[in-house]
Structures are given as structure tokens and as C-alpha cells.
């Protein structure tokens, strides 16, 4: 006689546990989890402004989306899965995602690679050579009109059209819809 109430109680308890897991801060829709490569799969090369310029120009006839991020940047971590999902969706149409981490280079193995592996992004992944210090050369290349005393928060995303011209600069965390609208405008 007691079996049924126990089963009901157990089922309810499982539901509550699952619900609690769902509202936990780290919960995210598992868009990329299944595609995550093995821990050692992601290659993260050190880069500087000149290297980034080469990385962009070498992706000929592509819409190159450059994202500056860091694991210490909450808004970056929030928006990152959207970019990865869009890369998967639009790669065949010519989107190329290039990400540059501004984490301390000492955090490459412990923070950056695990985050990238979890995200499912395995290509176009770089870390700034000077870690979490921003070299002005990046801004001379990407935002030459920015006043020299203007503070620079992350994330920052730059969209290059197929002709290699920088056409869009997005400052601050973006929604997936914002990203998709901005990127697809140049994929046509």
C-alpha cells in the first residue's frame, strides 16, 4: 500500500531537483554541449593586433566576426554561446568567427580552454599575447576614432564584410537576435 505514495513522492522529488538545477546560475540551454570537442581539442594561439589583422584578411570572401571576450567578463560569457550557435548555423554561408580572449595568459589551460571546450568552438580561437592588458594597437586598427582616454569595456564585437571592410562594431553584451540581425545583413 505504501509503494505508490513513495513512488509519487520520489517522482515529485526528482521534479523538484530538476527544477532547482534548471534555475541554478550556470544553467544554459544545451545548444553546443553535444558538439563539445575533447578537452585537448581546442587550439588557442597567442595573437596581437598585427596577427589579428592577418587572421581577418586571410579569411577571404568571408564575413568575419571578431569577438573580444574574457572568462572574467560576465557579459562576454553570457553572449558567447549565441555566437557559437550562429557560427554553426551560418558557417556554410560564409560566417567566420574569430575570438580573442583577454584573460591572463596564465589562465589559458585552467579557464580559457575549458570554457572554449564547453562552448563547442574549436576554430578561430586566440588569446591576447599580453593577456588582460589591452594593447592600443587593437584600437588603432578597429576603433581609430575612439578617444584615447575612453574606457574600453568588454565584450566588443567587430563585423567585417566579405570585402574585408570593417562594417559594424558592437559594444557590450548582445542578444542572439542582435547578433543574428547584424551578421546576416552581410551574409547576403
Amino acid at each position: 500500500m505504501m509503494a505508490r505514495p513513495r513512488r509519487a513522492l520520489a517522482a515529485t522529488a526528482i521534479g523538484v531537483i530538476l527544477a532547482a538545477a534548471a534555475i541554478a546560475p550556470g544553467f544554459r540551454p544545451m545548444v553546443a554541449a553535444n558538439a563539445a570537442p575533447a578537452a585537448s581539442a581546442v587550439n588557442v594561439a597567442a595573437i596581437d593586433a598585427a596577427g589579428l589583422k592577418r587572421a581577418v584578411s586571410s579569411r577571404k570572401n568571408k564575413v568575419v566576426v571578431v569577438n573580444f571576450w574574457a572568462t572574467w567578463c560576465g557579459a562576454c560569457v553570457e553572449e558567447f554561446p549565441s555566437l557559437v550557435a550562429l557560427q554553426k548555423k551560418y558557417r556554410a554561408k560564409g560566417m567566420e568567427l574569430v575570438t580573442v580572449s583577454f584573460d591572463d595568459t596564465q589562465d589559458l589551460q585552467t579557464k580559457v580552454k575549458p570554457f572554449l571546450n564547453k562552448s563547442g568552438l574549436a576554430t578561430g580561437t586566440y588569446i591576447n599575447k599580453t593577456g588582460n592588458d589591452l594593447d592600443e594597437a587593437y584600437l588603432r586598427y578597429l576603433e581609430p576614432k575612439l578617444p584615447t582616454d575612453a574606457a574600453v569595456p568588454l565584450p566588443r564585437t567587430y563585423i567585417f564584410a566579405r570585402n574585408g571592410k570593417l562594417v559594424k562594431t558592437l559594444v557590450g553584451g548582445q542578444t542572439a537576435a542582435n547578433f543574428e540581425k547584424a551578421i546576416t545583413a552581410y551574409l547576403k
Binding site: 521534479g15 523538484v16 530538476l18 527544477a19 541554478a24 544553467f27 553570457e78
Partner: peptide, 23 residues
Amino acid sequence: CAVLLFSVTAVAAVYLNAPTASR
């Protein structure tokens, strides 16, 4: 009920955790 509770909460969590619109 458990499945429904999880589903509703999960959907709510997706929205609650969604990045805020760019300001």
C-alpha cells in the same frame, strides 16, 4: 507534474539567464 514543473522552470530559467538586450 514533476516533468511539467521541470519544463516550466527550465523555460523560465532560459529567459531569466538570457543576456539582457544591448544597452
